[in-house]
Amino acid sequence: MSQDSVRVERAALETSREESRFRAVMNSSVGRNSGLVIALLIVCIVGAATAGDRFTSTDNALTILRLAATTGVVSIGMTFVIIGGGIDLSVGAIVALSSVWCTTIATQQLAEDTHWLWMVAVALLVGAGCGLVNGILIAYGNVVAFIATLAMLASARGLAEIISDKKTQILGANGIDVKGFKDFFTADILGVDVQIWLFALVAVAGWVLLNRTTFGRRTVAVGGNPEAARLAGINVRRHTVYLYVLIGVCCGIAALMLVAKTTTGSSTHGTGYELDAIAAVVIGGTLLTGGRGTIVGTVLGVLIFSTLSIIFTLNNRSFSEQSLLKGAIIVAAVLLQQRLASRSST
């Protein structure tokens, strides 16, 4: 009798221990990311089941990655900003402004006269400059990130419209020769587009920066508890500025990819990127309150959304249904995240 009850107790203890181990795994970044891998696999299975080899072909995989690349680069930057306890609503507008600024006749002329890398420099500098303004306003002006970047969203796109006169600026207009630029960004290496390589490069660089450097540890500290970070000797304000400059540079890279892909710069480029990037980061398991998140999760989040997009196109389904599903996925991911978070705290 008593032996039995001991056995039962022990068994109960073991299951609860196992459960807590399961919870711990699910809570670790590896666990969350494997959840995302499973989600991506399910999406791929749905794709293969509904579209067959039209989905599983290499060309289709490349199409998905090409679609993912532009928003992907922005999302990597967004991951840093959100882990650091901030948010950036201005990314789409910065992409538009960078794309416009690096395709003005003056910039293109400069590129023809000297080297096409000038266009790259202009795009990156414009992105970094916008990020710098955002960062200074937030860190030193004490403007809430939401408001500061909302203001940048409006003014960067406005400036893009002024510079371009709301017209589409075409690469190589007026007979200017910037073929080197276009050839570089639209070439492929080993059958894979340079744009996809760039996305991979940015992702790997982001992973190293976040996980293997002081900068990454500081980002987590600043987002997790800014007061503690300050007491630990981190210059929280300066670090916040760095984070917004970083995402600005990412926007510049995305703008370059878009310019090469479309051979145009336009004030309408990058519309809605802020939502795409935040959505990818959130379903990637990064806490919106900051202090925790992974690059791998973000990359998986981007891939899930772009794969879904292509599946909808392949199956002749409407964009509206896709937006609806996207919303549902975001809510589901956040609910799951909250459950895991509350469990781990008890």
Binding site: D59, K261, S309
Partner: peptide, 19 residues
Amino acid sequence: AEGTNDVNLQISQVETFIN
């Protein structure tokens, strides 16, 4: 492939048609 004002997405839609 209905309705988008994002040129990046519209490009990928056309790529899908090509594939």
